[in-house]
């Protein structure tokens, strides 16, 4: 999904550069409230993990592949503001060191792939988490749906950017249909990876999942004194799904 140089004209690239810079500034401000001693190193790891998984293109249709974007995943794990920063770090590294995503298109890419997915994904996740039962399973399901939707929305935003500043003159209906269609398929991969990762962290350290704060009970409550509780299997096994809040 990385937009190379030459797809979007200079004025719109500059304008989205300004939008991206604004988004990063807002992210830096908001991230101060999201980051603490425990989550700051986690945020660095989330960046590196997204970089790694973005290398893993999976086939989606005839001669087409897709890869994780990661904005939804980052936002759920470390918070939406920090998530935008994670995505910006990844996209910057890719553009500067790996020639992936044009330098002039960096603002386009941060806006479309970073800010859009983090905002849409996190918003939808919180919305679903609010209406679903407060269990780990439903949080996994919420992350699945949020990630799935974030990818075609990202494709739609790219189409909008192309409509305003595209360097070529392709009918928009053709672009929108093709872009959104293929990115629904890619969104399924995004959803699987996001839900698997969020569920894994929820299983071992729910307290580290920013989007689940206040929704799931910390594990300490049921494993506190694990050695002592081992003799009471019924008690230890009972609350395997998370608590009501």
């Amino acid at each position: 999904m990385h937009v190379p140089d030459g797809f979007i004209d200079a004025p719109v690239s500059v304008a989205l550069g300004v939008v991206a810079a604004g988004g990063v500034a807002v992210g830096l401000r908001g991230a101060r409230r999201e980051l603490d001693e425990r989550t700051a190193p986690l945020a660095g790891l989330v960046s590196a993990f997204i970089f790694a998984v973005q290398m893993l293109n999976f086939p989606v249709a005839s001669g087409t592949s897709g890869h994780l974007l990661g904005g939804t995943l980052a936002a759920i794990l470390v918070g939406p503001y920090t998530g935008v920063l994670c995505m910006s770090v990844v996209l910057l590294m890719q553009a500067v060191f790996f020639a992936d995503g044009g330098l002039s298109a960096l603002g386009v890419n941060i806006t479309v792939m970073g800010i859009t997915t983090a905002a849409v994904g996190y918003g939808l996740f919180k919305l679903l988490a609010a209406v679903l039962p407060k269990t780990r399973r439903s949080l996994g399901a919420a992350s699945f749906v949020a990630a799935l939707v974030s990818v075609p929305v990202c494709a739609a935003v790219f189409t909008l950017v192309y409509a305003i500043g595209g360097t070529t003159d392709v009918p928009l209906s053709k672009v929108a249909g093709a872009m959104i269609g293929v990115h629904v398929l890619i969104g399924i991969g995004e959803a699987l990876i996001t839900a698997a990762t969020v569920s894994s962290v929820l299983a071992v350290r729910p307290d580290l999942v920013y989007g689940a704060r206040g929704l799931v009970r910390p594990l300490e409550l049921r494993t506190g004194g694990a050695a002592g509780a081992a003799g009471v299997p019924g008690q230890a096994a009972a609350p395997s799904s998370a608590a009501q809040v």
């Binding site: 190379p4 140089d5 797809f7 293109n57 592949s65 500067v96 020639a99 044009g102 330098l103 392709v170």
Partner: peptide, 27 residues
């Protein structure tokens, strides 16, 4: 990993969005 073009690359090539694509400055 799959070597096929990703969603955007494929659509761009199919529809002609990439007619004016430029080489990466740090290629």
């Amino acid at each position: 990993a799959s070597q096929s073009p990703d969603g955007l690359e494929k659509v761009a090539a199919d529809k002609g969005i990439d007619a004016k694509v430029e080489d990466h400055a740090l290629a």
